[in-house]
């Protein structure tokens, strides 16, 4: 079995995995980082979005071995101690989640949106950028509000 080495949320990890192990399986089963979810098998729903080398990817459509040598960030890697990341805080402040299942993917995608589009986001941009993340609970209204507020908050942080 291949050995894979990567950094997950800043910590180096090494493991032997079957080549067919998906990154999301590796995170959930091997590392027990169960915040990253699986909501579909066709890379549509976005519940599994994590960052690989700073960019959002669907961890259900990437092999663990493909992340060899990469820096992976999951939802578990965002908060600093007890302090939520401003985007997490924005989701809480704006009721941007209900059942919570799509939430980790939404937050990781939201950060990617901010990275590429900056801190002042209009509604249309956010809605378009969220097309790879499906939520059944919120109707998106408050997710859009959360992403915009989170983006702004990230900009005002020193």
């Amino acid at each position: 079995m291949p050995t894979v080495k990567m950094k997950v949320n800043g910590k180096p990890v090494t493991a032997e995995v079957e080549a067919r192990t998906l990154l999301v399986q590796f995170l959930r089963e091997n590392l027990r980082l169960t915040g990253t979810h699986v909501g579909c098998d066709t890379s549509q729903c976005g519940a599994c979005v994590v960052h690989v080398n700073g960019k959002s990817v669907k961890a259900c459509s990437m092999l663990a071995v493909m992340a060899e040598g990469c820096e992976v960030t999951t939802i578990e890697g965002l908060a600093t101690g007890n302090t939520l990341h401003p985007m997490q805080q924005a989701f809480m402040d704006n009721h941007g989640l209900q059942c919570g299942f799509c939430t980790p993917g939404m937050v990781m995608t939201a950060l990617d949106i901010v990275n590429r589009n900056g801190n002042e986001l209009d509604e249309a941009t956010v809605r378009k950028e969220l097309e790879g993340n499906i939520c059944r609970c919120t109707g998106y209204h408050n997710i859009v509000k959360s992403v915009r507020a989170g983006a702004k908050a990230m900009g005002s942080k020193p």
């Binding site: 980082l33 169960t34 915040g35 990253t36 999951t74 939802i75 578990e76 965002l78 908060a79 939520l84 997490q88 989701f91 809480m92 989640l97 919570g100 939430t103 980790p104 937050v107």
Partner: peptide
Amino acid sequence: DRRFLIGK
């Protein structure tokens, strides 16, 4: 919300 937002 907190537990859902931190992946817990």
